[in-house]
Amino acid sequence: MISQHLPVIDSINFKNIHKLLINFIKEEVKRTGVNKIVLGLSGGIDSAVSCYLAVSALGSDNVAAILMPYKASSSKSLEDAMLVVKNLNINHYIIDITAQIDVYFDKIGSNKSYYNNNSEYNKSNFNFEDKSKESNYELKLRMGNKMARERMSILYDRSHILNSLVLGTSNKSELLLGYGTIYGDMASALNPIGDIYKTQIYQLAKHLGVPESLINKAPSADLWQDQSDEKELGFTYKLADEIMFLLVDKMYKPEVVISMGYDEDIVHKVYNKIKKSQFKRRQPLIAKVSQRTINIDFRYLRDWI
């Protein structure tokens, strides 16, 4: 059977990849008539890599980092984000999002009376007490999504004030698995790392000189305490990335990937996650009525001028 695996970003191919990513940021930003970017810096490896690339492309004066902790965010995250800020000597803003998140969930979002007054929930005999008991996870997920969208909303507001574009920080693994919040952390103007798997992000980070303390910690969306991407997904990025490389980059069918020795359950799990999250990667559907419809047969580059 064919032996193929996800290529490593090594010291030899790094030079070209680095140049391509830097030119991408430089040229795609310049084209819009803006020369600055703003990005959310979480203390994780993905946003750090995006940030290092942005500074290489545009210079430290043209990159601003926004740090947006919630009260449950780990203090290590903020420390690590500050380490990036310090190393790259870039402008930064710390905006704590606890107040607005808590107001929403205390007063509106998770309030028992909200559910009781909502006719839809009454019809379906929804019982909030039972719901919250059985599914603490559900609330965590909603809060996580809300935080991601709050951060997006702040980033876009800041991008207006700073006359900057929002730089994306989602890697190929999470984009494919749908492990991100639509219109939250998945939103950006341009994303330099969206075609690079998480496994490769670590390799890229090393070559870029991202501090070790960011590289050597378990991947986490840090939406609640001790959250772990890999625990939540049920497989490691290393394994998922190898499988996705074969499914997506190589376009092998799941049964072929299984025949290459990968665990059947995990291959199907990964494949289904990719399919089920397709909606997150595309624009909303538009009902075609006219002869020429946006994104269907009104076809231009985004870079159309």
């Binding site: 490593v8 030899i12 191919n13 070209n16 990849i17 490769q200």
Partner: peptide, 12 residues
């Protein structure tokens, strides 16, 4: 278009 990463290869 530049595409495809290879280990130990300084070219796409």
């Amino acid at each position: 278009p530049a595409r495809g990463i290879e280990e130990g290869n300084d070219k796409f």
